[in-house]
């Protein structure tokens, strides 16, 4: 049975970029534990030789012709932005290169 600690929830929240509160850590730790216990039932299925399915339809080789199509204007592209500057999206300082 999976157990999930408060620290693990905090780690997941960091990975998922969620600045969760202390109360949420407790709440989610409890709820995720219940949910994970339930969904862990997938592990009961003997499926060693079963191939995984990532796509519901069996399509392959769907390609687009390499022909330009009109996109958005700069104004449209920036229309939803919180802040812009010189035709660019203005964002807070970035800590480091990825």
């Amino acid at each position: 049975m999976p157990t999930i600690s408060r620290d693990e929830v905090a780690h997941l929240a960091r990975l998922a970029r969620l600045a969760v509160t202390e109360e949420e850590l407790d709440l989610f730790a409890g709820q995720l534990e219940v949910i994970l216990t339930s969904v862990a039932r997938v592990g009961e299925v003997a499926a060693a030789d079963i191939p995984p399915t990532s796509h519901a339809v069996g399509l392959t080789d769907v390609f687009r012709a390499d022909v330009p199509r009109p996109g958005l204007t700069q104004q449209q592209a920036l229309s939803g932005a919180y802040a812009t500057e010189d035709g660019r999206f203005r964002v807070p300082r970035i800590l480091d290169e990825s």
Binding site: E85, D86, G87, F89, R90, V91, P92, L95, D96
Partner: peptide
């Protein structure tokens, strides 16, 4: 990048 106040994205 170091010491920048903000960044602009293209």
């Amino acid at each position: 990048i170091h010491g920048a106040s903000h960044s602009l994205l293209d």
